[in-house]
Amino acid sequence: MYLFQIIAIIGSVALFAFVIDFIRRGLLKEKYSVLWIASALVIMALSVKKGLLDGIAGLLGIAYPPSLLFLVAFIFILLINLHFSVVISILHEKNKTLVQELTLLRNALKEAGVDLSGKAEKKGPGNG
């Protein structure tokens, strides 16, 4: 076993352990951990099975098989980043709607004579 394999195995096992621990402690939602876990497992498999790494590298015409590990890691990082950009965009849209609704709601409360501490200053129409 080469040193690079040992380093890659340690690295991917550590990544796997961190991700599982983050989920366990509630710091990471399962939904956002899938790509991380997949990348840890794939890198782990490629570094344990030298034959697999060499085989795929040969198939792709990569002369130096360990650089396939970099390629795989790079692709995963790219996917994870793209995923985050999508998630952020969705959150942005939801955040916008939330702020707008809150803004209108606060105005409606003000019109109804309710101040923001929640106490009614004067009774609005239809207030039984």
Binding site: V99, L102, T103, R106, N107
Partner: peptide, 8 residues
């Protein structure tokens, strides 16, 4: 006046 909580 409608005030956003923060700059949007």
């Amino acid at each position: 006046v409608l005030s956003h909580l923060y700059n949007m």
